[in-house]
Design a protein around this nucleic acid. Structure first.
Lengths: 340, 340
DNA sequence: TTGAAAGCGATACCAA
DNA sequence: TTGGTATCGCTTTCAA
């Protein structure tokens, strides 16, 4: 009796005794259809288990129901950073509820051309950037083509796109205050990469925090850990070789903090007795060390949700906007208590 | 002059003075087309920058060029496990070269229905499982519908599907040998979840290893860490409370090992002097502890590549097959040297 | 080996 | 508010 093929709009139309156009309207929730007809059509749809064919829809000019997720790091690096897992979880929650598919795109030199061609060719309804470079070619190009997008992280200033970000500047400042308040007298900062905005912002915030506390700039030393565990390990050793009197370290990510702790451990330096450490992300990585890390964070899962919602708004044609999350400091074992 | 729209097959056909059908053949690399024509067509394609429209292709019954990646864990948990990053990196390498898109699917209770409907509705050419449950409803259902698939990990025995796996049994055995050889006399094992095959296999392998070494079963204790860091932390404490004389621990994943080390640290137990620890995965997580973890591994990135290739074969209609990677033991600081 | 033409299953414009 | 219908761009018989 029933054909072996999947039911189509046409089948629904025939059974409901209406036109395909009407069924299409019902399916897309277009207003202005007689409620009785809506019910009738929905009944038939449920009965025969109709599902729109996304390929047909896309071809006919409708939405693709897919979102391009652009990662800035190699996937293997990405997965070392539990922070992104939280973000992604938030993103997935929003999109999967709306039946959007997420497709993985890696924004590195090897894949730039293919990713770009993919994105330019109408495969996606919008693009969400996980992390932003200072000078992002892909983002720039997509921007020019007016492809709907949003970013987790602050884009270069000349791009008017929606984004969500932690207030990195404020976070950096908080770290400085905390370290100084707990008695540190010589500070080291393990930075990430200057081409990444959030990295620079945190550094600047840290400096401002020191200034606010009238901390002498001569007692402050900075080095890059390149946002990798290994890089931070090396950086820490270099930093301490040159400035053995450092007693407080601010490191810009939990992942790098792993490298810092490793170096400190090897040197038999007690944390926080000899050196206090403040990290950034408040990710599960911050719990993996001993002592556990005092870390700056903001709700990463929630921020992922916000990013998804921002993108959805852009796709819907709403104006771009941005959301900033205030940082909080989770005090764990790697810092001392504030002095009176 | 040039229309603002993307060039289509038809445009190519016109310019090359052949039929659409012929162009289609050239594009799909179908054999039996006059070489001269192939060249001509390819020239035109390059010239006007033609790209096939995937929606049209899919609608017309061709491939979708997308692969469904099925994750078994919540994304936030997944990202705590650097192991999967390596696997995914390998997978991405293969598929991105072939212009396949990867779409993220999470196989948990909340999403089962939507994921299933997505997969059943011809959105993908094939499905790759990242991790396998003992009793995987989704896999079972896809199997019945004969949707091309492959798995990272060993599926339930009644499903004839392609998979790649480490030899978990052998790995478990190696761990037992190593621990016993280095002088441990009371062994604890932090298992994962019994419903996950690789977990059970490792446990069985471990037991067999003990038997081979004539190790008394009365000196062996087992507890589940549920494959989470927190779970392993709790499990370790419970285990040591009941059996304080344990001097060797085998824990089934690096992630869980983080929890084990945390517990050991809190108890001021020296590793490996008082307790030796062997972990499993040889992932970046194994480097995050102090001392670093001796861990069982097999090339995870390579295995990801193999998984991708296996799936591609299935999609191409080749028979199912499986690949087993032999485990190796990376000795780091958490174990002692073997006694003479 | 090549071409003609019939779909594939929606969307959206234009009338009614 | 509803329906008719052209259209999207490609694949795939079937003939020639």
């Amino acid at each position: 009796m029933s054909s072996s093929k999947r039911p189509t709009l046409e089948d629904v139309a025939r059974l409901a005794k209406v036109s395909r156009a009407t069924v299409s309207r019902v399916v897309r929730n277009v207003s202005g259809v007689n409620p009785d007809i809506v019910n009738k059509v929905n009944e038939v749809i449920a009965e025969i288990g109709f599902k729109v064919n996304p390929a047909a829809r896309a071809l006919a000019g409708g939405s693709t129901q897919t979102i391009g997720l652009v990662f800035r790091e190699k996937l293997s690096d990405l997965f070392r950073n539990a922070y992104w897992g939280e973000v992604l979880q938030g993103i997935y929650m929003i999109f999967s509820d709306l039946n959007y598919q997420l497709t993985i795109l890696v924004n590195d030199e090897d894949h730039l051309a293919s990713v770009e061609s993919y994105l330019f060719n109408g495969h996606v309804d919008g693009v969400l950037f996980l992390g932003v470079d200072q000078d992002d070619v892909l983002m720039q190009n997509l921007y020019e083509r007016k492809i709907p997008m949003a970013a987790m992280g602050r884009p270069a200033r000349n791009l008017k796109i929606s984004f969500v970000d932690g207030d990195d500047h404020a976070g950096g400042s908080m770290a400085a205050h905390k370290l100084i308040e707990t008695g540190c007298e010589t500070l080291g900062l393990i930075s990430g990469r200057d081409d990444i905005n959030s990295s620079r912002f945190r550094v600047n915030g840290f400096k401002e925090g020191m200034a606010e506390m009238d901390f002498p700039t001569t007692n402050y030393f900075e080095i890059s850990g390149r946002f990798t565990q290994e890089g931070a390990y090396l950086a820490t050793n270099e930093l301490l070789n040159e400035h053995p009197d450092i007693d407080g370290i601010f490191v810009l990510s939990d992942l790098m903090a792993l490298g810092v702790m490793e170096a400190l451990n090897e040197r038999n330096i007690k944390v926080p007795e000899q050196i206090s450490v403040i990290s950034n992300d408040d990710s599960p990585n911050a719990l993996a060390t001993s002592p556990k890390l005092t870390s700056l964070g903001y709700s990463s899962r929630e921020s992922g949700q916000s990013g998804a919602e921002l993108l959805l708004d852009v796709i819907a044609g709403k104006p771009t906007r941005s959301i900033t999350f205030n940082p909080y400091l989770v005090e764990r074992g790697s810092t001392k208590n504030a002095k009176k």
